[in-house]
Design a protein around this nucleic acid. Structure first.
Lengths: 192, 192
DNA sequence: GGAAGTGATGTCAGTTTGTGTCATGACTCT
DNA sequence: AGAGTCATGACACAAACTGACATCACTTCC
């Protein structure tokens, strides 16, 4: 059914990651990416709103799962709930470590990219707050819970990305290690 | 001693805010800003790295005060310490409400600007973590405290910005109202 | 008091990002 | 076979930046 190469988008993503790693983000041109992928810069911009978005486009797949984890949780307290939800998220991210590490290094090169990553996290956090509200928490509690959860998760994520591939420590391990430290902020009963 | 108008930078900032309010961020050109300020776009880019930065340039003045609040705090527990530091920060921001509100509305228009604002907040949060480490907290505690503090402060900030100028509720009021909600996460003794 | 800096600004040409518009040509459907 | 679809290419263009050089009021030093 495909009339065209069909994987153009994937080829563009691969080319972009490759060139960003080799030449840095600012040092590579959309034109170069497109050429390497056998396409035109015009085609690049049809697939991705801007040069940035090639790094963020496939990111939002995980969010629905996270929200659903919270909506469908059977834990009795907020701590168990966040633990289960963030653990499941960690499991889904586990196989992507090499690519995520690459991506992380690219993003750190550029203030704009860093900002966009944070904006994405903020969107996620907001979605989690909504899910918690839906679940019956009041707004202040929901916001604090989400803030703590994300602070914890991003801390764990960075530690995990800095580790070696064969260090035997999963992202889930990193996440769960941190939970006891914040136990007293996370021991509220889930509203009935 | 000034050989040139000397306030070029300030004129550029004023022109930029004015045009962003009137025509939106994306809808105004650096050329237009520069012309309105009686300058050239080349001059604009000599004062500000990008079009964005005219909105963020003067922002980091407050950070040193915040860090110093924490370094010099005499409170005995983490809650009192954060309360004093964030309260002092709120006081310093109080007079700037109209401009801050303008700025907020401009930033909300654009994903990139939102991201940059978040990146700035992250830098601040990181500086606060460092200050807490310096003060003797362990890293995990410092990160959680800073995360909670910023979540609380930005929530209060948004509420305050949405209020009327004459509603008699200071930013400090908004901040302090939120403290009791998170008491159990903020009752750790300051390490000796 | 004049010569030699100094430093913010202007001018101009060029690259890169991003968009609007139309053409192309393989593929689908009837 | 003919009509329509649709991802892509080609071209032109605006706007965001950058590098190189010129200017010219003012300072400094002799």
């Amino acid at each position: 059914m495909p009339r065209w190469p069909e994987n153009t988008r994937a080829r563009l993503v691969d080319a972009a990651f490759g060139m960003f790693v080799e030449q840095g983000y600012a040092g590579t041109t959309v034109e170069q990416i497109a050429t390497r992928a056998g396409a035109t810069s015009r085609t690049f911009f049809r697939h991705f709103r801007d040069k940035d978005e090639v790094l963020f486009a496939d990111d939002d797949e995980l969010l629905p799962h996270l929200v659903e984890s919270i909506a469908g949780s059977t834990a009795g307290d907020s701590g168990g709930m966040m633990r289960a939800a963030l653990g499941a998220l960690a499991d889904r991210m586990e196989p992507g470590r090499p690519r995520l590490r690459q991506r992380q290094r690219i993003i750190e090169q550029d203030v704009g990219l860093t900002g966009r990553e944070l904006a994405k996290q903020a969107r996620w956090q907001h979605a989690v707050v909504d899910a918690l509200l839906e679940r019956g928490f009041d707004r202040d509690d929901a916001e604090i819970l989400a803030a703590i959860g994300f602070a914890l998760f991003t801390g764990a994520l960075h530690e995990w990305l800095e580790g070696e591939d064969d260090d035997g420590r999963s992202l889930r391990d990193h996440v769960e290690r941190r939970f006891p430290k914040i136990a007293d902020a996370l021991n509220r009963p889930v509203p009935s």
